[in-house]
């Protein structure tokens, strides 16, 4: 089979957007846990291109799996934009598998229809019913980190969330990555 490397235009404009951090409480005691929720979305290039046309193009070129590797966590802010001390982080992979679906809803004329299954971290499979659902499942991340007050230490702390997303080279584009940090929040530990 011959196939041609055809990069999707604008793939380099992929970025992490809407990264945010929120806490379950503004104050916490040393012996209490507090939950931090980190949210982010991969937007632009790869998200925009992630349609059934791209799935079919990749599938035809035997490029049948797309992995997004995320590294997400919380850091303390020391002064201004300088951060140090990763308090908690998680690295995980979400894998999209392109497959030939025989669903009569997807291909009522019995033609080839390449669809996608997303396997989330923890190996939970999702069969999206629409392209938008596939994008949301693969590119929108929400993680909760539970931290003990003692891990933060007494005092007032400024925290930021960080997120990095990376992917490998495919028939539709070069490997790449994008990273971002959130606005800071403060939490007081008594």
């Amino acid at each position: 089979m011959k196939y041609v490397y055809e990069p999707v235009k604008g793939l380099e404009r992929t970025c992490i957007r809407n990264i945010s951090i929120s806490s379950s409480s503004d104050t916490v005691r040393l012996d209490e846990p507090v939950d931090f929720t980190v949210k982010l979305s991969v937007a632009g290039g790869i998200r925009d291109a992630f349609t059934s046309d791209l799935w079919e193009k990749a599938w035809d070129a035997w490029d049948k799996t797309f992995r997004m590797t995320y590294n997400i966590g919380i850091k303390k802010v020391v002064a201004g934009p300088i951060t140090k001390d990763v308090i908690k982080s998680q690295k995980f992979v979400r894998r999209a598998t392109f497959y030939w679906s025989r669903s009569p809803e997807l291909n009522p004329d019995y033609s080839k229809k390449i669809w996608v299954m997303v396997v989330l971290e923890g190996r939970e499979p999702v069969h999206p019913k629409s392209v938008d659902e596939a994008k949301t499942t693969l590119f929108d991340v929400k993680k909760t980190f539970r931290v003990m007050g003692s891990d933060l230490g007494k005092g007032k702390h400024a925290l930021k969330a960080f997120g990095k997303a990376s992917w490998g080279r495919h028939i539709f584009g070069e490997k790449g990555n994008s990273q971002s940090v959130s606005k800071e929040i403060t939490i007081t530990c008594k």
């Binding site: 799996t65 598998t97 497959y99 499979p125």
Partner: peptide, 15 residues
């Protein structure tokens, strides 16, 4: 079924 389905991958077929 759920566990097994996560290994779904299409093959190369017959050229």
């Amino acid at each position: 079924y759920t566990k097994f389905s996560t290994y779904w991958t299409d093959g190369k077929g017959a050229l």
